[in-house]
């Protein structure tokens, strides 16, 4: 019988520290599967974020660097510029990419750096205990918006992917989700496209992945998936943005 599914070589065979129902484990695995399928494991250099996925380098089995909070795209820019034959990607959360790292994000995109960005949007700060993120929805309760996010006080959910799409240096942006198997398959396809773009020298590619955080949404894992489908994806519509 032909073996058609196994543990990815690019993912160490470990239990993760992630909470039950968290999306990070799925996203890590999708990236590892694509890296294996494209045969680029020995060329990959990943930049791990500050946030829940800070120790992504303990799970992936290829070269990785940590970056200071928000600075992943500055680090990635330099690595790719000095090692153009390597495949460089960042893995960043919403606080990292769209709050503290907004400057680095916009300018790396505007320079058209030939790197991939995997942007995990779970609308909350996970590692620090569930505070408001730039992508937190209006009325969403967090530990710093206990009555819900109020536009007058806290501003609006930041659609950074739509903002980045305006820049001529950006070649590909797609928003996907992890809330159901079909959406997970679409996410994997988008990750694959982003890597292919880099391999072919197309340029800056970003995949925004809506990802569940049951712990800080105060929901059961299944309810979290439904919330992405019914609520979060209304604010952050899925599909190709650029």
């Amino acid at each position: 019988m032909e073996k058609i599914y196994s543990h990815p070589k690019s993912l160490r065979n470990l239990s993760t520290h992630y909470c039950p129902g968290c999306g990070h484990g799925i996203a890590h695995r999708l990236i590892a599967e694509v890296v294996d399928e494209l045969g680029i494991r020995e060329k990959v250099i990943a930049i791990a974020p500050v946030g829940c996925a800070v120790i992504a380098y303990d799970y992936w089995d290829f070269d990785c660097s940590e970056a200071a909070h928000g600075r992943a795209l500055a680090v990635a820019t330099a690595i790719k510029r000095v090692r153009q034959d390597n495949i460089v990607f960042t893995y960043q959360g919403d606080g990292d990419l769209a709050a503290i790292g907004t400057n680095e994000t916009i300018h790396a995109a505007n320079r058209g750096e030939n790197v991939c960005v995997f942007f995990i949007n779970n609308a909350v700060y996970g590692m620090t205990g569930g505070q408001m993120a730039p992508t937190t929805l209006l009325n969403q309760k967090t530990s710093t918006t206990i009555k819900g996010r109020d536009a007058g006080l806290h501003g609006y959910p930041l659609k950074i992917s739509e903002m980045l799409a305006l820049l001529p240096g950006v070649k590909y942006i797609e928003r996907t989700s992890l809330h159901s198997p079909p959406e997970i398959i679409k996410t994997k396809k988008a990750i694959n496209k982003a890597f292919l773009n880099q391999i072919e020298g197309v340029g800056f590619s970003l995949v925004e992945i809506l990802s569940p955080c049951p712990t800080y949404w105060g929901m059961a894992p299944k309810a979290s998936l439904d919330w992405i489908r019914d609520t979060m994806s209304k604010e952050f519509p899925l599909g190709r943005i650029k």
Binding site: T77, A78, N103, E104, H107
Partner: peptide, 16 residues
């Protein structure tokens, strides 16, 4: 784009 980005680029280049 900033001194912060510049030093983090140096971090990346040195890491490479």
């Amino acid at each position: 784009e900033s001194e912060i980005a510049a030093i983090n680029m140096v971090y990346g280049a040195s890491a490479a």
